[in-house]
């Protein structure tokens, strides 16, 4: 019996999200009185795999195959299912990100295991097994009963604190025989946004809305983001206007994020926008309209002209950074 996490890597490296999953998995394993196993797919050095031990992973099952260097949801599902069966997995945990969302549902069908997706905290109870998740785009939380022997959870990013629990993990190689017929997805081209902080990974996000009035006014937002090591985002009208790229759109139909700190600048705070950012730990709103709904979601607010306020914030951040 075990709890399994899928430890995704990015160019052979894990990131904070992976360790959040490990910390979460370790706690679920403790609740069930069992051990924690991680599955890694792709080329990851042993020294990197061992980092999972710091967060309570007792065993790492690692597999590499040149056909598995890009995500093929069917092939990945089949592989994780085999490891889950071999390890007697009772609960399988993945991230609620692109990879997790494309593997977990397939795995649910393959193993006939109930899936709780976008879970935001530890299971409320394990007998029966009930998890909590956001529904109606953040307007409510639901308690979802997972009614099968094996359960699958996808965990929201930045919803579980890292918890160190150092053990020396066993590393086990799992070899797979694959031919081209089993891997159907052929990647023709990859375009990466080099050197940018990923919006979904960022601890601080600086976001601008229609109140910024023009694409030409973005400079202070970019400068503030740079100073705070933050990612930049925008509201839907801004990406629709082409002032900022679509990848930056946060909101119900764009990216759903949960940073520690979210700056909403010139954003009125429509329901659809809040749906994408309401899990932020702190929201700062800067808006010239004091009745804008964003102030109901924010903990800190400035009623004023963003173009006048932003330079002052940039100066204030420069000051604390030089101290």
């Amino acid at each position: 019996m075990s709890v399994i996490i899928y430890a995704e890597n990015w160019d052979g490296k894990f990131k904070k999200l992976t360790f959040e999953l490990a910390s979460y998995g370790a706690k679920v394993a403790e609740m069930l009185g069992t051990s924690l196993v991680a599955v890694s797919i792709g080329k990851v050095e042993e020294s990197e795999l061992k980092k999972l031990g710091k967060y309570g992973v007792q065993k790492v099952v690692t597999t590499d195959h040149e056909l598995l260097r890009h995500l093929d949801s069917k092939a990945y599902t089949s592989l994780i299912a085999r490891v889950a069966q071999k390890e007697g997995a009772k609960v399988i945990v993945m991230a609620s990100n692109n990879a997790g969302k494309s593997i977990a549902p397939r795995l649910s069908v393959k193993l006939k295991a109930a899936l709780g997706s976008g879970v935001n905290k530890l299971p409320l109870t394990t007998e029966p097994f009930v998890v909590s998740k956001k529904v109606f785009s953040g307007n409510a939380f639901a308690h979802l009963l997972l009614n099968t022997e094996v359960k699958i959870i996808t965990l929201m990013q930045n919803s579980f604190d890292l918890a160190e629990n150092a053990v020396e993990p066993v590393i086990e190689n799992f070899s797979v025989e694959l031919d081209g017929a089993e891997v159907k997805t052929v990647v023709k081209d990859v375009q990466k946004h080099e050197g940018k902080i990923l919006l979904t990974d960022a601890e601080i996000v600086i976001s601008g809305g229609r109140g910024m009035k023009s694409a030409d006014n973005w400079q202070p937002i970019l400068e503030l983001a740079e100073l705070l090591n933050a990612a930049t985002a925008c509201s839907r009208p801004v990406s629709d206007e082409g002032w900022r790229p679509h990848e930056e759109h946060t909101g119900q139909t764009g990216k759903i994020i949960a940073p520690n700190l979210y700056f909403a600048i010139g954003i009125s705070g429509a329901t659809q926008h809040l749906a994408g950012v309401s899990s932020s730990k702190y929201i700062v709103a800067i808006n010239s309209d004091k009745s804008a709904p964003i102030f109901e979601a924010a903990q800190y607010g400035i009623v004023g002209d963003a173009m006048k306020v932003l330079p002052k914030l940039v100066e204030a951040v420069k000051e604390i950074k030089t101290k």
Partner: peptide, 10 residues
């Protein structure tokens, strides 16, 4: 395989 058993407002 699953069912919603309760809801809570944020």
């Amino acid at each position: 395989l699953s069912s919603f058993v309760a809801y809570e407002p944020p």
